[in-house]
Computed example of a mutant assay.
Amino acid sequence: MIELRTGEDLRRISTALRRMDDKELKKRFRKELRAAATPLVPVVRASIRNIPSSRGFSPDGLRGQMVRATRVEVRTVGRDAGAAIRVDGRKMPDKRRSLPSMVEGKKRWRHPVYGNRAVWVTQTSRPYFYRVVRPAGAASRRAVNRVLDGITRDIS
């Protein structure tokens, strides 16, 4: 049986780590959380590269920028403590920061055709993130639970 941990468990463990003065244990906790989430990054990047395009994949194009913006984020403090895979709009060039959510289909994607503001088109979304992360999520949750169990044993 697999016991799923909640964000509350993670917050409790991170609070206990903050109270302790063991920098090595804190460092190991962050490192192991990052290692548990890292295998999903190449999966998401491959999904972005496989988004259909008439021009093919270019590292300098929009999809290339999205690939470079994909990363693991680990937080061990606050309400959002945990490890997350993120296609970070803040890492995108100006005026393209909302592109990751528009391509996923969360926002409407309308733009002028080659800069001609008299002619606009609505771009179809090409979901790339949740459809590949959900199936792999169970393995990541198990890995995070192993990390939490090991750190809990070390704290106790």
Score class of each variant (00 low, 15 high):
E3P: 03
E3V: 12
T6A: 08
T6K: 03
T6D: 05
E8C: 02
L10M: 15
R12L: 11
R12V: 04
R12F: 10
I13W: 12
T15R: 14
L17H: 13
L17S: 12
R19P: 00
R19A: 09
M20D: 12
D21Q: 12
D21R: 12
D22R: 13
K23T: 05
K23P: 08
L25Q: 01
K26A: 06
K26E: 09
K27C: 04
R28K: 12
R30K: 15
R30S: 13
E32H: 03
E32D: 15
E32N: 13
L33H: 05
L33I: 08
R34H: 15
A35Q: 10
A35S: 13
T38S: 13
L40A: 14
V41M: 06
V41C: 07
P42F: 08
V43M: 06
V44Q: 04
V44T: 06
R45I: 09
A46L: 10
A46C: 04
R49W: 05
R49S: 04
I51D: 12
I51G: 10
S53N: 12
S54F: 11
S54M: 07
R55L: 12
R55V: 08
G56H: 04
F57P: 01
F57G: 01
S58I: 01
S58C: 02
P59S: 14
P59M: 04
G61T: 02
G61A: 09
L62C: 06
L62V: 11
L62M: 14
G64T: 05
G64N: 04
G64P: 09
Q65G: 12
Q65W: 03
Q65R: 14
M66D: 07
V67F: 01
R71M: 04
R75K: 15
R75F: 05
V77I: 04
G78R: 09
D80R: 03
A81H: 08
A81G: 07
A83D: 01
A83Y: 01
A84N: 07
A84F: 15
A84S: 12
I85Y: 06
I85V: 15
I85W: 07
R86Y: 10
R86G: 03
V87Y: 02
V87H: 01
V87C: 02
D88Y: 01
D88C: 00
R90C: 00
K91Q: 13
D94A: 15
K95W: 05
R96M: 14
R97W: 02
S98M: 14
L99R: 07
P100I: 03
P100M: 03
M102R: 15
V103Y: 11
E104R: 09
G105V: 05
